[in-house]
């Protein structure tokens, strides 16, 4: 029962972090700071939120490594695809 109560507490703490990070993102986007900095910070915060959901709510932190590999595999493919897309979109030969 203690383990269950501890898990529920963790879920609620993560909810607090997710809501807090979201509000920080909204705040950042309205501050008079350089656009590139805002984009970098807001996307970094989104990545942290996604990681929190994956690790704690989807239980990747406690699950088998195979599932982590399955979850990470598409990101490797996307990185490769984005590399091709961005190189052709922004590099003029």
């Amino acid at each position: 029962m203690n383990t269950a109560a501890s898990a529920v507490r963790t879920y609620l703490i993560i909810w607090g972090w997710l809501a807090g990070l979201m509000l920080i993102s909204v705040l950042l986007s309205s501050l008079p700071i350089p656009r590139a900095t805002v984009i970098l910070l807001v996307l970094a915060l989104s990545s942290v939120k996604a990681l929190l959901v994956a690790l704690y709510y989807m239980h990747l932190k406690m699950d088998r490594r195979l599932l982590i590999l399955v979850a990470l595999f598409p990101f490797v493919l996307i990185t490769l695809a984005l590399g091709v897309v961005f190189s052709s979109a922004f590099v003029r030969l």
């Binding site: 979201m22 993102s25 909204v26 986007s29 805002v38 984009i39 807001v42 996307l43 915060l45 989104s46 939120k49 996604a50 959901v53 994956a54």
Partner: peptide
């Protein structure tokens, strides 16, 4: 579905 929205929200509404 939540994670997808976590990225769509800033891309479409904030940035």
């Amino acid at each position: 579905v939540d994670i997808v929205w976590i990225f769509l929200f800033p891309l479409l509404y904030l940035l």
